[in-house]
Design a protein around this nucleic acid. Structure first.
Lengths: 197, 197, 197, 197
DNA sequence: GATGAATGAGTGTTCATTCAT
DNA sequence: CATGAATGAACACTCATTCAT
């Protein structure tokens, strides 16, 4: 028997990353329909065949890109998460961080939006991705328990606490909403008015 | 030898309508990526060539489908619109009507969602479609003028008054939100709490 | 409702025939492995896409080609079939006709050979094709009943009465066997010696 | 840093044999068309690159597999060959041995069949392979000289003495022919009737 | 010797669109 | 107006082979 240690060329994380970035870029620019494997490959500066070394097929590439983004997003947002602060302060912090992240990474946000509303969306176990954001959900729960937040269905709370961010941070939808501190503060006030008891 | 019997003329609009419906159905079922012209034609029971009688090309078919839906939606929602009622009552009525309409026409809602987040979305002059819903926007304006609603950026008001409906009415996103009168009432209360002065 | 008679371009039997011929030619020259759809299309002077107007897929093209050949073969061989002659004369006639047909249509014979021994072979219901040759099989049956031919398993009779033809007519296998009347007569004598009672 | 431990050397012949077997298995199961180098490699549990250590290219692998099989076949069949027996007994023995071998090694028989009728067949110098079976051919020659066997073209004799075996032993072609001693005896009788003087 | 990564060239198939009828 | 046939261009994907290690 022969044993080899690190003898051959190894798969390259840089290449995988380049493929993720190429996928995001193209899907944002020209949409899923036009984002063909060969175009993605060209954008990532690899051969189309190379994609199949790293991913099972196009679907796998796209779903993996989505999951990768969601992971990065959750890490960025929860990086400085401090659960010891008062509920309102936690939520307010998250608002500012999310606005910051989304507006600096609009490409990820847009990709996620297209992905979620496309049939690809149904391929991803929603809970798998949601768990990355568990700490945020727990904050609302604690707020309810402490009788600071209205005791209503969680989907309702989310619809007013989280979704407005994704809408307001999207310049396509809100071209008149300037992303300055004052405006974010105002918007957060509305959100808080909605959910607070 | 060719014989050409024109026994009767099918109403063109019927075929156009069939194509709209086929487009919506297929895009919802298999997405933009897989919805080819020939599949849409088959679904509508016409020849692929016939599509080019009614539409310039595939893009025109899809954009026209979108605009047609938006028009239908606005008509349905504004059908019994009564601007003489108090602001809050008007908005509350719209909430119930929209929930009713969306949940009974989920296919339209889903199509619009996919369309808007895709590059097709940028092809439609946003204002053209938005004007269908002008009366709704005016209500908010009047609310602000009457100092019933917070005087903030309009995008913010929309993000709390309209977008939550599209989220909550979408069973894919809010599988725990049951669409009964009580829940809608509750959700509207949050929306109102958000925007009211 | 509108009724059209022969209004549009119709499928073209000549094109189908050209595709059959191109398939046979290429498979014989370069084998199944190298006979790609695009090469077959080029040989038949149509676009690759056109093949899919006439056949479901490549497999359908190849299987249809095989069945078409078998039908042509059976027609040619049974054209002047006279069941009133003595058994031996019938069989002898068939030998001469088959040698004639195969040596003049070696391409069909070779295609059938490759097809049958390939996995495509299992796709064709053997009985469907065999029934084209039913009259031949019946001759042997009558010979057995009349106690002219040995009463043994039919596969054995076939192995000595029919298969030797396919081998001897194949110049690749029998390069020393010249296809003149004398040689065929001799070969038939061996076949008859084998099966006669 | 690279570390290279050669703990033990696998016998090369084992790998070559594994590749032969994998080739035979796959070609039988999915045909030449689908038997790609990488699939054969996977089946043999080696890397695709390893194949190119043992063979020049894919063609070399397949042709070598064929020649290997032919050699094995001839060895098995001529193992207990006794040229001192009477001609008829020798031939009869060979019939039984060949039936035994083929039915126990149907995979080899099927591979040879596919190979021979494919363009690969023309790549192998027919005489190179035939010489393995020279003793069998010589028996017929002696039979002719001793005026026991008809003095006719050798291809004719082969067509009745050898080919029927390959037909009858192939269950795909002769599904009604059971391979018991009595049936083989009967079939051999027909073969002998055909060629004997 | 043996490997997994990498790829240009190719696969079978579908595409949006045009055209003669 | 309405069509099925026809197609060049593109699709997702696999191929046999090479290469650095």
């Amino acid at each position: 028997m022969i044993v080899y240690f690190r003898l051959m060329r190894m798969k390259d994380d840089e290449k995988k990353e380049a493929l993720f970035e190429a996928t995001v870029k193209l899907v944002n620019e020209i949409g899923f329909v036009s984002s063909s494997v060969s175009r993605i490959a060209k954008e990532a500066k690899v051969s189309p065949a190379t994609i199949y070394v790293y991913f099972e097929n196009k679907e796998d590439l796209i779903v993996s890109t989505y999951i990768d983004i969601k992971l990065k997003m959750s890490k960025a947002i929860l990086e400085n998460f401090d659960p010891t602060l008062p509920i309102r302060d936690i939520l307010r912090n998250v608002w500012f961080i999310m606005f910051d992240y989304i507006s600096n990474n609009l490409k990820y946000h847009k990709f996620v939006e297209q992905f979620s509303s496309s049939p690809y969306g149904t391929l991803v176990e929603k809970k798998v991705v949601e768990q990355y954001f568990d700490p945020l959900i727990n904050v609302l729960q604690r707020g309810v328990e402490q009788k600071i937040i209205k005791k209503v269905n969680f989907d309702i709370l989310s619809a007013f606490m989280w979704y407005p961010i994704t809408i307001l941070a999207n310049p396509r939808l809100c071209e008149n909403f300037e992303l300055n501190e004052e405006n974010i503060e105002t918007a957060f006030t509305l959100a808080w008015n909605a959910i607070k008891l």
